[in-house]
């Protein structure tokens, strides 16, 4: 196919509860759509082949790799990104507060993907063991922390979410 022949598809999708409509090439990845079309740069792009987990977003509530999903596939689906976690720009979701408290991030590149992987995990497993957390984290790479503080943060987040106390 020549470069001059470019199909354009209109995609209508809901991101963090807000409806968006954009004309995109079908080859545009969901990760790039979020970052470049919608300006939601909290979704990070690491390996772009599904290994690192930095681009993880919620697709109808389930964590998926946005670099392995086409933007056009978000048509009529609900996407959640890290920007949608807290109720306002000055607020933190309990899981974010727990990462802050437990020093669960250093450079922060992997953090958004980890939060969006751990949130549905904690909703289904409100009282996980450390081993279960480590297993659930296995699809997200972090090169700074050695994971220990991330595990601590998730344990703390689980306790905060169980008690319904956003401030721990």
């Amino acid at each position: 196919m020549s470069e001059s022949h470019k199909q354009v598809v209109t995609v209508v999708t809901t991101v963090n509860g807000e409806r968006f409509e954009r004309d995109v090439e079908p080859r545009l990845l969901l990760s790039d759509f979020l970052r470049h079309e919608l300006g939601l740069t909290g979704t990070h792009v690491g390996c772009e082949h599904g290994v690192c987990g930095a681009c993880t977003v919620l697709f109808d509530g389930e964590p998926v790799r946005s670099c392995l999903t086409l933007a056009v596939q978000a048509q009529d689906h609900e996407i959640g990104t890290v920007e949608g976690l807290a109720s306002g720009p000055e607020d933190l979701h309990p899981i974010q507060q727990a990462f802050w408290d437990a020093h669960g991030l250093q450079c922060g590149f992997c953090t958004g993907g980890i939060l969006l992987t751990m949130l549905p995990f904690l909703e289904k497993n409100p009282n996980p063991t450390e081993q279960e957390i480590r297993h659930a984290l296995s699809g997200n790479l972090c090169r700074c922390t050695g994971y220990q503080h991330i595990v601590d943060a998730v344990l703390r987040a689980a306790a905060m979410m169980r008690s319904g106390d956003g401030n721990g």
Binding site: M1, E3, H5, K6, Q7, V9, E25, P26, R27, L29, D32, E48, H49, L70, V72, Q73, Q75
Partner: peptide, 11 residues
């Protein structure tokens, strides 16, 4: 690291 152009249908 981006796909080459293609035509797309979603029947």
């Amino acid at each position: 690291m981006k796909p080459a152009p293609f035509d797309y249908v979603a029947p």
